[in-house]
Design a binder for these strands. Structure first.
Length: 312
DNA sequence: AAGCCTTCCAACCGCCGGCCA
DNA sequence: CTGGCCGGCGGTTGGAAGGCT
């Protein structure tokens, strides 16, 4: 029992859009909103299927689309986020205002994937290749692998934050220079973040309590901070010295965000990883996540040294 | 100049999950 | 509960553009 096609293909135009069609679509959406995509083409007088109209609008005609080539910063961010999210282009696109999932997917497939290969890294796993494949045997599916990475990151963040919480006052004691996450937490950025979340009485007392309670209270903020920690670590040269995974590329010593793919991942922890991942995907990114961008900017200079740019 | 090859990206296709009757 | 509708997503494709011989 196959699905009915999204539209009756008879009499409907396919292929590249003409400027006239673009104009009709834009004018219609400006006046009426897109409403039901399925009925839009008929109402607007277009010989296209609704899906085609939606795609044209979201990928090309939308007024907030950012034109022009990707900046280095954007490319780095895509690579970082791909390491966390895998091929979830829409989720990645939500981190890059004005960029579409299609655009990012194309960027990855045409440029970044090659760059990874050139650096001796598996574009799917972000792990170094060896003569007989990746150094670390990854879980069977990308989804499972990313869940494991998430959980591993969460557990380590929790452990580290528990340790650090003992040293929270004075903040400088025992703090590594590279721990941007904690520094940020203690900075104005962290403070404004805490203010932002002051409504949540169970979380946000401290980084430790917040992260620890992330999966129990479902605090999106906590997950955000985990992401921040993960990204901060991945952006920080030398910060992975004590991590479980060997992240050394034969070609470079660049940052690597693969975090112990082979660390234990119990069923219980997979559940929490599930919720964390889900929360991330549901997270309305253009508010809280901005602090990550700050962090990213702060750390991006370091990336330049161990450049991801691979002359082809 | 012509032909071939490669790269790039807009657009299509099919699947999935949420919603609703 | 079930099945259809719909929007969204990720994978793939096809053709235009540019480079090379």
């Amino acid at each position: 029992m196959g699905r009915t096609p999204c539209c009756d293909k008879k009499g409907l135009k396919k292929g590249p859009w003409t400027p006239e069609e673009d104009e009709i679509l834009v004018e219609y959406i400006k006046r009426n909103g897109h409403g039901s995509w399925r009925s839009l083409p008929k109402l607007a007088g277009l010989l296209r299927c609704g899906k085609s109209c939606r795609l044209r609008w979201t990928n090309y005609l939308r007024p907030d689309i950012k034109r022009g080539p990707f900046t280095d910063e954007e490319e780095k961010l895509v690579i970082q986020l791909h390491g966390i999210l895998g091929n979830r282009w829409a989720a990645i696109a939500s981190q890059l205002p004005g960029r579409t999932d299609n655009e990012i997917k194309n960027l990855w497939n045409t440029h970044l994937k090659k760059r990874m290969l050139c650096m001796g890294l598996d574009p799917q796993t972000h792990e170094p290749f060896t003569s007989c494949g990746p150094t670390i045997k990854a879980p069977a599916s990308p989804t499972t692998r990313h869940m494991a990475q998430w959980e591993s990151a969460r557990l380590e963040a929790e452990a580290r934050l528990s340790r650090e919480s003992l040293l929270f006052n004075p903040p400088s004691l025992g703090k590594t220079e590279s721990d941007y996450f904690l520094r940020m937490w203690n900075s104005e950025v962290g403070e404004s973040f805490r203010k932002l979340n002051k409504g949540d009485k169970t979380a946000c007392q401290s980084p430790t309590s917040q992260v620890s309670s992330s999966t129990k209270c479902g605090s999106v903020s906590a997950v955000t901070m985990e992401i921040g920690h993960n990204l901060a670590r991945s952006l920080t040269p030398g910060s992975n010295q004590n991590e479980e995974t060997e992240c050394k590329s034969p070609n470079s010593n660049h940052e690597e965000m693969v975090i112990g793919s082979d660390t234990s991942c119990s069923n219980d922890s997979q559940d929490s990883s599930d919720s964390a991942l889900q929360l991330l995907l549901d997270f309305p990114i253009n508010n809280d996540m901005s602090f990550l961008e700050d962090n990213y900017v702060m750390s991006s200079a370091m990336l330049t040294d161990n450049s991801l740019i691979c002359p082809l």
